Amino acid sequence: MRLLPGAEPYAHHGSSTGVLLCHGFTGTPHSLRPWAEHLADRGLTVSLPLLPGHGTRWQDMRHTGWADWYATVDRELRELGRRCETVFVCGLSMGGALALRLAARHGAAVAGVAVVNPGVTFPSRAGFLLPVLRHVVPSAKGIVSDIAKEGVTESGYDRVPLHAAHSLRALQRLVRTELPRVTQPLLLMRSAEDHVVAPGDAALVRSRVSSTDVTEVLLPSSFHVATLDHDAERIFQETDAFITRLAPARDKEDSP
């Protein structure tokens, strides 16, 4: 199956500090590629997989669900753990929810979590209708490219398959119950204006995790896909500083 432009997974072999990046629902690695490349340029080992059902046609996503998406990032995390001494997880939107679940379930195997506009709730009215509506209406209007920066678009689907949306809702419900198990240092970055994720999701994450080391960063000039927006460089710099602070000293010495 032919991939959408920019949907290719990305990997870089670098130091003994690894970073796993998780893209969002109906999106592709394209939205996180600049973030991944920045970390690779810093000498880190980086993995940015393409989630099942993504990056081809929205119809393909109807046959996948949260267990498939999570299994992919779980497998990538375990692979990084075999090759690296220290591993961080990062994510955007649903990718943020996946990253938080990885942290909750893998404990000390994850050194820190950096998320941008993590999506952990589903619109209540739409969620109430989904169980029935998904059997009647195959898809709804897409959510990609919520970007303030003029001329920038995100590679992803222009339709949301409702079977997959129903599965996303189940994932979010599960992640909310597991947030207290997140104890790792957390870098929580949120846009001042977001037309995809509810305004209170970041606050909900912060209030429920058990992390004592939490840094919250406001992204004043970006919409949902902030990793491609005006505040992208701020995200990259904050993540770099976060990892540098927490990674072993020998990796810091090896960084360019």
Rank of each mutant, 00 (worst) to 15 (best):
D158Y: 10
P29H: 12
A97H: 02
G65H: 06
R2V: 14
R208E: 14
G112C: 12
G107F: 14
P29V: 13
S93K: 13
A165P: 07
A170N: 12
V115G: 03
R181L: 12
T64I: 01
I147V: 15
L246D: 10
D74H: 14
C84I: 14
H63Y: 15
L187S: 07
R42I: 04
H195F: 09
G107W: 12
G200C: 11
T72W: 04
L39A: 00
W35M: 03
V87E: 00
V132P: 06
R78P: 03
D254I: 00
C84V: 15
A67E: 15
E85M: 11
G112Y: 09
S15P: 05
R181F: 09
D158W: 08
R2T: 14
G65V: 11
W69K: 12
L171C: 02
A170P: 03
L4Q: 11
I235R: 08
F236R: 03
R173N: 04
S124W: 15
D240N: 05
R125D: 07
S31P: 05
S255Y: 00
P5E: 04
D240G: 02
G156Y: 05
A108E: 11
A109G: 04
S124R: 13
H12G: 07
P9V: 11
T121R: 13
N117C: 10
A226P: 02
A148T: 01
V137G: 01
A111M: 06
L77G: 02
R105S: 13
D158G: 15
T64E: 06
Q59C: 00
E238R: 06
P131G: 13
L188E: 10
S124T: 14
A126G: 11
H38M: 09
A164R: 01
S16E: 12
L133C: 10
R176F: 11
E216C: 13
L77V: 00
D158E: 00
A164M: 10
R83C: 12
C90K: 03
P131W: 07
R75M: 10
G107M: 12
L102Q: 07
L186G: 03
E37N: 00
S15R: 06
Q172W: 05
G55E: 00
V225I: 12
R159P: 01
A126K: 09
T227D: 00
